[in-house]
């Protein structure tokens, strides 16, 4: 297992270096003067330009600049925002819990609905249930989620008035951030109605972000179950006279879950990287909205640093999924 871990890590390091080269060179490939872009100043006198250029280290050889940049990154220095002058890593850490909270809720929603739906479709294969579930899953899989979000806002927030339109909690409530997770912080604050408000704000974004993973998980659970159900050991279990729910629930489901777990893990990685569209529609203050806003503000320092951090997070999550997969399924370790 340890060798498996080392092998995975060995692949990760060159990839991370490649990612850092992309993040580093991207600002230098942009049309226009990188010094002006990074400082955020449009019109500069030649002296001022030279001064900032020296400050940012642009007057040194490119290799030195890159190594310096990489050294900074390894120490947690991802640059400073042009707009707010805050370190990029601080902004990231402040916004990341919101994204984690939303992603976890969405993946939970997708798993809780998706796996049973896929199992039912597989057991009742060809029936009306199967057709309805798989039809719905295909619609979910084809959904433009930015539109799906707007539609839910029209119906649930607009017509039914059940949930708020945007944000994480009603402005009526204010309490210090302890964990960064609104659901937990609102409970800790002890204010009446705060938890309810946080929950209401979370419902629609969770559904929207969870829709595509839900469809993918349902489809994959079904095909994995179908494959497993036709195996000999399942027939043996049936022949022994075990009740159906035991055969399906214990014998078949366990093995069918192996590919599904990988899918779930990879989906989490993508979600943690920021649900760009969902966060934008619901003004959810997370990583995705942060990146979109930075693109529009032309805050290149944040884009550069953010890209690198996000890629790093995805790589770490994928590594964790790989290791977990190696634990569940010993066959792939070799």
């Amino acid at each position: 297992m340890f060798r498996f871990f080392l092998a995975r890590l060995a692949v990760l390091i060159p990839t991370f270096i490649g990612v850092s080269i992309i993040a580093f060179s991207f600002i230098r490939l942009l049309p226009g003067d990188p010094v002006a872009l990074l400082s955020g100043e449009r019109v500069m006198s030649p002296e001022r330009h030279a001064e900032i250029s020296h400050q940012l280290g642009f007057d040194r050889p490119i290799v030195v600049q890159y190594l310096d940049y990489l050294w900074g990154v390894l120490q947690g220095d991802f640059g400073v925002s042009i707009v707010t002058k805050e370190p990029v890593i601080d902004q990231f850490l402040e916004l990341f819990p919101a994204t984690v909270e939303l992603s976890l809720c969405a993946i939970l929603f997708a798993v809780i609905v998706g796996i049973p739906a896929g199992v039912i479709a597989a057991i009742k294969r060809g029936s009306i249930f199967d057709q309805i579930i798989m039809g719905t899953a295909l619609v979910g899989f084809s959904m433009p989620i930015f539109w799906w979000g707007l539609l839910l806002i029209i119906v649930v927030s607009g017509i039914l008035q059940w949930t708020p339109v945007s944000g994480r909690i009603s402005l009526m409530f204010f309490f210090p951030s302890v964990t960064g997770f609104m659901l937990i912080d609102s409970l800790l604050s002890g204010q009446a109605g705060a938890f309810q408000s946080a929950l209401n704000h979370l419902v629609l974004p969770t559904i929207v972000l969870g829709t595509i993973p839900l469809a993918v998980i349902a489809r994959q659970t079904r095909s994995a179950m179908l494959e497993v159900l036709s195996e000999d050991y399942v027939r043996t279990a049936r022949a022994k006279g075990l009740p159906t729910f035991r055969v399906v629930g214990i014998h078949a489901l366990r093995n069918a879950m192996i590919p599904v777990v990988t899918t779930i893990g990879l989906q989490i990685g993508v979600m943690l990287a920021g649900a760009i569209l969902t966060e934008t529609i619901f003004s959810w203050p997370g990583i995705g909205k942060w990146m979109v806003d930075s693109v529009f503000r032309r805050d290149y320092a944040v884009i550069q640093g953010g890209l690198l951090i996000i890629a790093g997070v995805i790589m770490l999550v994928n590594l964790a999924v790989d290791l977990l997969y190696g634990l569940i399924n010993p066959r792939i370790r070799h």
Binding site: T15, F16, V19, V270, A273, G274, I276, L277, G288, M291, V292, V295, L307, I310, A311, I314, M315
Partner: peptide, 9 residues
């Protein structure tokens, strides 16, 4: 390693 929509954006 990058999320596809973010990289495209």
């Amino acid at each position: 390693a990058f999320p596809s929509l973010l990289l495209a954006l």
